[in-house]
Amino acid sequence: MSRENTLVTAQWVEDNLDNDQIVLVEVDEDTTSYDKGHIRGAIKLDWTTDLQDQVRRDFVNKQQFEALLSERGVGNDHTVVLYGGNNNWFAAYAYWYFKLYGHQDVKLLDGGRKKWELDSRELTDAPTEREQTSYTAQEQDHTIRAFRDEVVAAIGTQNLVDVRSPDEYAGRLLAPAHLPQEQAQRAGHIPTAASVPWSKAANDDGTFRSDDELRKIYTEAGVDWDKDTIAYCRIGERSSHTWFVLKEILGQDNVKNYDGSWTEYGSLVGVPVALGDERGEA
């Protein structure tokens, strides 16, 4: 993979607003953003209700994902272009999710909703109507999804990349600073994990940095390009952004997103935790 076949610009999206082959999908942390205004023709996916099981902590299953996309009018042959707020955190999460269920042609709008807004491009509150489809998903691709046992096994052996802010990594904050800090889990990071905040991969306007800049950032942080990599954050969305960078822009093999992330790891009994700015020992 490379940025040429995984990223599109805001101008490209504007030029393709009437292309029936393309389905624009907005996914935001603030699930009301779409309702206030969205790119013309875009549909909404709500990450809390559409993409999460409503009882267990897990994703919707294959049949539920098929029903969701069929009802929203997304077909297997459509090019899905995702965008959202927070510099595309949740759009990148949805991108990873579409890949998890085997959708062939998915792209991210570089810079997401922020870039679109900062460019003063048009948003509308007009509802989007699409014809239903009959969507068929694949079984989950676990070559891109990490679970807790392999994360523990990766300590000191694989690249672990903690993409949260430096204060969350060190244990000084428990959540991103736009959220209240009272949380159940312990503070800190997985020992040996490199701290590479997701934001290092993005420019202020939310677009991704150049390939050379990106490769340099992860190399300087100690990522060994010959090893497999697991990225994590707090709940798995910011790490989807980094997964996208490593796997889809830089074309690394064997990159997984740990969607359990710190809210799972920091609540596990008996696992090692490192505090402070240093990586810690295996």
């Binding site: 603030d30 953003s33 206030k36 707020g85 927070n86 510099n87 922020k114 807004e117 802010s165 430096p166 204060d167 000084r172 904050l173 959540a175 991103p176 600073a177 736009h178 959220l179 209240p180 800090q181 905040p197 934001s199 290092k200």
Partner: peptide, 21 residues
């Protein structure tokens, strides 16, 4: 250190809020 920690869009009234350390 100048490192990004969080970002929010402003509300319809231009408001924003962070829970910092």
């Amino acid at each position: 250190t100048g490192e990004f920690t969080a970002e929010v869009p402003t509300s319809p009234e231009g408001h924003f809020r962070f829970f910092a350390g």
